[in-house]
Design a protein around this nucleic acid. Structure first.
Lengths: 237, 237
DNA sequence: TAGTGGTCTAGACCACAGC
DNA sequence: CTGTGGTCTAGACCACTAG
């Protein structure tokens, strides 16, 4: 028995749910019943059921029992690695080019205003390549009050995203994903026709409420798929 | 004290991490130290620290201790509600129209092949409206072997997505998000110019490995933002 | 090998929602 | 009211690993 007991219990309960044998709304056995069935302490089955509740598979109600949840919202965990990792995951060679680097005060309105930071910033524009072809254009500002070390970094070789991930802790992020047509400048940078459909990803990153960085990344539509998987429980399968 | 102790401990530890006071790599106090500090059982502090580990805020290593995690992957939880909910959340009125409904055997290749289902299916095309304007075009197949009840449902009033959520349990889903230009048909259906940049969302849904439904939803680019928030911990803030 | 986290027990009391 | 889940205790033994 290498697997912990509470994990085995979770897996068995989850299997009953995922197979459809226990449909939404079904009341799963009470904790004292599970305790008797597995011959263990209630804390152990409670931990097992708690994991299912955290995963959204069941809903626990005092005095009533624990019920198989009725899924009504599609929730997905999206992992957005930095672009180098993303490109290499596709088995392509990664390239990087800095197009522009200049200090600039952070703006108050618009997307930048959401950062909740005002003061000196560093504005960067760069391109990422996959197998020598443009993969993404990136437009970023870094809040120098939050990350003063960035002022002395030459980003001509190191992509700012990778550098930030290595040097700065972040605690919150928000993404917005939309489609947009390429204007003339962008079309030239991405080597596509003007008006070409592109995927635009905007990401704000904060640490303890203080804005760290805002980045807009634009990908040629056909080159990039954002993949989001939902596995409500990682129990035994 | 209405808040459970383990929750208070989690919140206090998380605050130290999110403020940057405990940077990535910092070793947080040992469990026996926290136990002494809070005057409680070790199981209680262990539960608190476990929640932080589950949220990805810390990493626990036997014999070494528990360390503030070094975030390196942007992970976000995306909640994709059904379109009616999405529209109404924006404070707009929702409308629905069925364009086509016909039985069809599921295909083996392409996107449909991923469903891992072969046999009778139901193909549906419909439009969603927000404030009377086209909001999305939806192209869906339902696996009738998994959901035989769908054969008898008239989807002229009820959007299939909402019906499925109410009648079928699902256990796994995968999304792909990309940008695409509108072809002539789509442009007419969405009331945009041909070539207009649109957001395409493909979702596969399974239950216990059996494909339930595949849906492709296309939104006019400027009308739709997919929002993804990351809050690594919901402790006290 | 010593000390950490990981797991588990056999109790206990409580809040609260259903009956 | 009754019985459920929610929380907590004061122990215990184990697995693993860093020193």
């Amino acid at each position: 028995m290498s697997e912990p007991l509470h994990q085995r219990i979770s897996a068995e309960l989850a299997a009953n749910i995922r197979s459809g044998e226990w449909p939404p709304g079904y009341r799963i056995p009470f904790e004292h019943e599970l305790k008797a069935r597995y011959g263990c302490a209630r804390a152990t089955v409670s931990k097992a059921v708690e994991a299912l509740a955290a995963a959204g598979l069941v809903e626990r109600r005092r005095r009533a029992g624990t019920f198989v949840a009725h899924p009504h919202v599609q929730a997905a965990v999206v992992e957005i690695a930095d672009i180098r990792t993303e490109v290499e995951k596709r088995g392509q060679s990664y390239g990087y080019e800095l197009l522009s680097r200049r200090p600039r005060n952070l703006r108050h309105g618009g997307d930048e205003g959401r950062l909740n930071a005002a003061g000196p910033g560093l504005a960067l524009v760069c391109r990422h390549f996959a197998n020598g072809r443009p993969f993404a254009v990136e437009d970023r500002v870094i809040n120098l009050e939050a990350v003063p070390e960035a002022r002395d970094v030459d980003f001509s070789k190191t992509p700012p995203g990778a550098w930030l991930l290595d040097h700065v802790a972040w605690s919150e992020a928000e993404h917005r994903i939309a489609a947009t047509g390429a204007d003339a400048t962008l079309a030239a940078q991405l080597d596509v026709a003007p008006g070409h459909a592109c995927l635009r990803l905007i990401r704000w990153t904060w640490r303890g409420g203080e804005g760290i960085t805002l980045v807009r990344q634009i990908f040629p539509g056909e080159a990039y798929d954002l993949v989001a998987r939902f596995t409500p429980a990682s129990f035994g399968g």
